[in-house]
Design a binder for these strands. Sequence first.
DNA 1: GGCTGAATGTTATGTTATGTCATTCCTCCG
DNA 2: CGGAGGAATGACATAACATAACATTCAGCC
Lengths: 150, 150
Amino acid sequence: MAAFPADRVEQAAWICNARGQTLTPLRRRVFEIVLAADRPIGAYDVLDMLAAERGRVAPPTVYRSLDFLVGQGLVHKVLSVNGFVACSAAARPHDAQLFICGSCGSSVEVARQLRAGLIEEEAEALDFAIESVVLEVHGRCHACRLATAP
Amino acid sequence: MAAFPADRVEQAAWICNARGQTLTPLRRRVFEIVLAADRPIGAYDVLDMLAAERGRVAPPTVYRSLDFLVGQGLVHKVLSVNGFVACSAAARPHDAQLFICGSCGSSVEVARQLRAGLIEEEAEALDFAIESVVLEVHGRCHACRLATAP
DNA sequence: GGCTGAATGTTATGTTATGTCATTCCTCCG
DNA sequence: CGGAGGAATGACATAACATAACATTCAGCC
Ligand SMILES: [Zn+2]
Ligand SMILES: [Zn+2]
Ligand SMILES: [Zn+2]
Ligand SMILES: [Zn+2]
């Protein structure tokens, strides 16, 4: 198998291939659109961009591709804004940890594990089997703080 | 002012009063419905129950009451299931920390702070001003694990 | 060629949430 | 008393987000 590529879209294709999956032209294009947005983007925004390129596009077309990309860990769904954002480290799937600015809409994904074992401890105490953890931090980003502070 | 009451609905009324707000009959009824559900409940489920009692009810009626209750910290919005759940410790507002079972839909709110300072550290490094943190843990609860394990 | 399975197209509908203006009701003040 | 002002609710319409179900296309394989 070829070496891990530098371009993020090629990385995505590589990751899919390594799993016996296919990054089809449609999925690739959707991934490119999400990637280019560089912030969480709505499914219907993706739809509009696709429609501008290829005429009428129905919602399932977009949601199926997004679901595939989310399933492969290439894209994260951002619950607090009903959006999707490209993963910054998709090589191995993980729960996203996002800092989301309420002013400009930008988001930053943090790779370093932000939780100590407290959640796992609590799960143990509850006899709760963790499957996934949603962690989304809201606030104001550096740029927006500069913009209003004197 | 009267002492802090034992009943959760009366507590809610007390909390509102203490802030110069009013738990009107409608808001009180919505709170009772959310409280009785003992798990996240959808806005339109609340709507249906209200409608059964008082005839036609429009969505804004429900959403306004839910928004009020969320604003007062009496109810938490659960993003991962598009639902609302009564807060188990509303006396002072806080970000919810929820363990949500994907099998039975139940949720447990944990009061003890589940995060060490790692999120705050990271925010500091990013110069990000935190306003709120969404933490929702998904998995299988104790009861559901018992139900399928031999 | 004909079967099969994956992907996409197509139509319709379900689910969640908000914008806007009208109405009610209470309180304050002259 | 009577009207101004504000909070809450009612009522209507629509926006925004997401999925169900079935048809079609196409490549790989025997
Ligand atoms: Zn990621
Ligand atoms: Zn910002
Ligand atoms: Zn709470
Ligand atoms: Zn359960």
